[in-house]
Write a protein that binds this DNA or RNA. Structure first.
Length: 887
RNA sequence: GGGUGGUUAGUUCAGCUGGUAGAGCGCCACGUUGACAUCGUGGAGGUCGUUGGUUCGAGUCCAAUACCACCCACCA
């Protein structure tokens, strides 16, 4: 015997219990079953040591909805979870921890440091996993992966070697972005540009052996110790004569050539530019063209090095001040102007980036980008919403090489070995301790690790076993949908597409569903520093996971940022509560369900047909929405159906039958109630998995858990247009009656008689058939059908419906003049509508060009309103006459 | 300098292929009727940023424009 549902909806009673039940029974784990279709999502791996935030909650809710939907549709639905080692941020956290203990990573050494990092990972690594579980994620934990797992490491090495062998990975001296705080190179994508107020300094460089000087403009005077030339535009007449001469660098008095290069803009600054090839990407290019060589003047902390003479040891910003002071004192500083420009910051630690020449490893992107561009253009890869495709294309079309080496320890070590004896560079799948060329054992592996995104870039296939040929890989790859934030397109999405196209020969996923950012109620980004973050776990604790999930997918559209209001979670908790109580009501009224009548004795009544029709109209719409990733639209349709159609109308209409004596009618109502509720639970399950499963488990005659139930499909024989229309008519009538009673302040407890005067038999039958509904839903004590409108005088209030008038005897409450006033307003309203329709119908353009069904609709409206207007006019004149006669 | 998104009820947002504007919250009035006050019933509230255009008809398509966000970009 099953227990009843608890009286009060309290998610805490069952959410955890159900999660374990699903997980323990293996419902999250799909099988490789060639007779079924797979559907695959790879979870974007959160940082292993991170904590769950709203972005994760949004992301994972969407993925879970898709996976549960597909699972119920009969797909082998794989949602593979995992975590990312997040090299730079995890390493920073461990370094910070060491610092607190008074240690540095250098003191500790690589091996000990990695032990610390693994400890850290073990301590905090489980945290986010457990937090995700509270959300209800139905991902396959048996296939969970971590980007630093042994197997993942193998995949990374394999990819590196393959790309290297194809000539797509190379080592070189390039200007890279150096973070003086993280002490590593970072990629262009990891640099955030921010507009900053600064100064443009105009500095005089003397021309050797003359009295003349050339004035250059720079924002970074402290790098002048690295200047290797002054450049002007070859077409610039002002400086023509200086080209080829020697300029003398102030402060250090070093001699540098004046060169001509097209790169220099004549009308910017002074038209003369100092060239610092080791500290500026453009200057680097110029330097290459003119063979200027390199001169580095900053160290890894961003301080001036020994090439800066007496300025050595000064931080770059202090050095700037000091250099400017000295230049001024010595008369070299000609001018200072305010100047704003975009300054690059480290995406992790927000430190200002230092462009610096450095020997690093790069991926050559252009040849890899081409197929990725193609894949989008020919439709193999879709973005939802599509506008992000443009962002994707723009990035790929302007792509630059990707710096992948990091001067960090926590990560995948480069599979690169340097022979100290013969100088050979060996890239190898296996660890080597002997040089394959000179056989020397004096060979060392590169100490650098790879950019985190290099390993996560392989996520869609490395997780399935690549490079090994596994059944999972064969069956589940390529994946179907990727769900992630738009802020991560460049970091991650593009890298996955590129590596997959290169080594798997196809796109890693068909659809990329991009979510917006979850912002606070004021529209600000949630951040730790602002302290405005809302903790999803607290919301789950208070309102339940279902309410939070529903909130995250409704009221916004894909790719758009959303403001988060706790009030909305509350509203959705109320929705869950509504479902809970409706279900409880139903179960209470199903107590005699088993011992009641036989199936074939069932007789569907109008309201049964009405709700079944509405249900079956909705099902294909919901499916369509879900297939198009319109999760919010799907959710609101179910919301409305449950609350309005099912609870407010159907249940209320059916109550008299449940309490009544007619066994067949009761049994029929019970059956329909149960049938509709079951479909609601199924449709809602992806959105609100916990409450729906909990209720499901309490229903009679269920043979499997909801999570693996069959998704509802439209039932053609359950569509009854005529009855649907009839009930809709009854609803309109009931609303009108309620409305007028409320306007006249008639309390619900005061029952009144309703007298209907229908125009025709059809309406008459509808009224008679549904008369009980008026009694329960429109506070009527009695229903009467009359033939003659004129029988009802001043003691009655009248409601004009289509083809029918309702009279309510409310003797004491009626003020005739007010009633006349009301009727006049009614008349005006109808007249306006008729005018509007007339206007349309008399328009030749409309008649000749609009589609027939639209014209017919308008004509019908006209008929309807005209007929109603006649009734109103008739009633109005009667009342006016009666008022007159009464005076 | 390029590009994208937003601008709809007091507020936060929906509104699919163009056909008399919707929801949640808030507000007002009434209501403990045997699922639910985490509720019910009724109501007030919008010239859909502005200006043009296409169309029989535009919140919905096109073009300008304003404002607010965001992204990209090597003018030192």
């Amino acid at each position: 015997m099953r227990e009843n549902l608890q009286k009060n909806y309290d998610p805490k009673d069952f959410e955890e219990k159900l999660y374990n039940y699903w997980n323990d029974n293996g419902y999250f784990t799909p099988k490789v079953d060639k007779s079924k279709k797979p559907y695959t999502i790879m979870m974007p791996p959160p940082n292993v040591t991170g904590t769950l935030h709203m972005g994760h909650a949004l992301n994972n809710t969407i993925q879970d909805i898709l996976i549960r939907y597909k699972r119920m549709q009969g797909y082998e639905a794989l949602w593979l979870p995992g975590t990312d080692h997040a090299s730079i941020s995890t390493e920073a956290k461990v370094v910070e921890k060491l610092k607190k203990e008074g240690k540095t990573k250098e003191e500790l050494g690589r091996e000990k440091f990695l032990e610390e990092a693994w400890d850290w990972t073990r301590i905090y690594g489980g945290r986010i996993k457990n937090q995700l579980k509270k959300l209800g994620v139905s991902c396959d934990w048996s296939r969970e992966r971590f980007t630093l797992d042994e197997h993942m490491n193998k995949a990374v090495t394999e990819m590196f070697v393959r790309l290297y062998e194809k000539g797509l990975i190379y080592r070189g001296d390039r200007i890279i972005n150096w973070c003086p705080s993280c002490h590593t190179a970072i990629s262009d994508a990891e640099v955030e540009h921010e507009e900053a107020h600064g100064n443009m300094f105009y500095i005089k460089y003397q021309i050797k052996d003359t009295d003349e000087a050339i004035v250059i403009a720079t924002t970074r005077p402290e790098t002048m110790f690295g200047d290797l030339a002054v450049a002007v535009n070859p077409n610039d007449d002002r400086y023509k004569d200086y080209v080829g001469k020697i300029a003398i660098l102030p402060l250090s008095n070093r001699e540098i050539p004046v060169i001509a290069d097209e790169y220099v803009e004549m009308d910017f600054g002074t038209g003369a530019l100092k060239i610092t090839p080791s500290h500026d990407p453009n200057d680097f290019e110029v330097g290459e063209r003119h063979d200027l060589g390199h001169l580095i003047v900053l160290d890894e902390d961003g301080r001036i090095n020994e090439n800066g003479g007496k300025y050595k040891g000064l931080d770059r910003f202090e050095a700037r001040k000091k250099v400017v002071e000295d230049l001024k004192e010595l008369g070299y500083l000609v001018d200072v102007k305010e100047h704003d420009n975009a300054v690059g910051h480290c995406e992790r630690c927000k430190t200002i980036i230092e462009p610096i020449i450095s020997k690093q490893w790069f991926v050559k992107m252009e040849p890899l980008a081409k197929p990725a561009i193609e894949a989008y253009k020919n439709g193999e890869l879709n973005f939802i919403p599509d506008r992000f495709g443009k962002v994707y294309l723009h990035w790929l079309e302007n792509i630059k090489d990707w710096c992948i080496s990091r001067q960090l320890w926590w990560g995948h070590r480069l599979p690169v070995y340097y022979c100290q004896s013969c100088g050979e560079i060996v890239v190898s799948r296996d660890d080597i301790d002997q040089c394959p060329i000179c056989k020397s054992s004096n060979i060392n592996q590169d100490t650098d690790t790879l950019d985190t995104w290099f390993s996560s870039g392989l996520w869609p296939f490395s997780t399935l076993g690549w490079p090994d040929d596994t059944p999972d890989l064969e069956y589940f790859f390529p994946t179907d949908t990727l769900v992630t934030g738009y802020d991560i397109i460049f970091f991650w999405v593009i890298r996955m597409v590129v590596t997959s196209l290169s080594e798997m020969g196809e796109v890693p996923f068909r659809d990329v569903f991009l979510t917006g950012l979850v912002r606070d109620s004021q529209g600000r980004k949630m951040s730790k520093s602002l302290g405005n973050g809302i903790d999803p776990l607290e919301l789950i604790e208070e309102y339940g996971a279902d309410a939070l999930r529903f909130t995250l997918v409704t009221g916004n559209s894909p790719g758009n940022d959303m403001r988060f209001y706790t009030e909305r979670v509350e509203a959705n908790r109320n929705f869950a509560n509504k479902l809970w109580n409706a279900s409880r009501f139903l179960l209470m009224n199903l107590e005699d369900y088993f011992k009641s009548l036989r199936e074939d004795e069932m007789k569907l009544e109008d309201e049964d047909k009405w709700i079944l029709t509405k249900l079956n109209d909705m099902i294909p719409q919901v499916n369509d929405n879900l297939d198009k990733y319109e999760l919010g639209l799907a959710a609101s349709k179910i919301y409305e159906f449950l609350w309005e159609d099912f609870c407010d109308w159907y249940i209320e209409m059916v109550k008299t039958r449940l309490y009544g004596e007619d066994g067949i009618s009761k049994k029929t109502a019970q059956t329909v109630l149960l049938l509709v509720l079951k479909d609601i639970l199924k449709l809602l399950h992806p959105f609100m998995p916990f409450i729906t499963e909990e209720i499901w488990q309490h229903l009679p005659e269920i043979d499997k858990p909801l999570i693996i139930e069959n998704w509802p499909t439209k039932s053609q024989e359950m569509i009854f247009p005529k009855e649907k229309e009839e009930i809709d008519y009854v609803k309109v009538a009931i609303k009108a009656i309620r409305n007028i009673r409320a306007e006249m302040n008639v309390s619900n407890t005061k029952k009144s008689k309703l007298i209907f005067v229908p125009d025709n038999d059809e309406i008459k039958n509808t009224i008679i058939k549904n008369s009980r509904k008026f009694i329960t839903l429109a506070s009527a004590e009695d229903i009467e059908i009359a033939e003659n409108k004129t029988d009802f005088g001043m003691d009655y209030v009248s409601i004009v419906l289509e083809r029918c008038i309702v009279y309510i005897p409310l003797k004491d409450l009626i003020d005739v003049s007010k009633e006349i006033e009301r009727l006049r307003k009614e008349k005006q309203k109808l007249q306006d509508e008729i005018d509007r329709v007339d206007n349309k119908l008399s328009n030749i353009g409309f008649i000749s060009k609009a589609p027939k069904h639209i014209i017919d609709e308008e004509k019908e409206k006209k008929d309807k309103y005209s007929q109603m207007l006649d009734s109103v006019l008739e009633r109005l004149s009667l009342m006016e006459r009666l008022l007159e006669a009464n005076k």
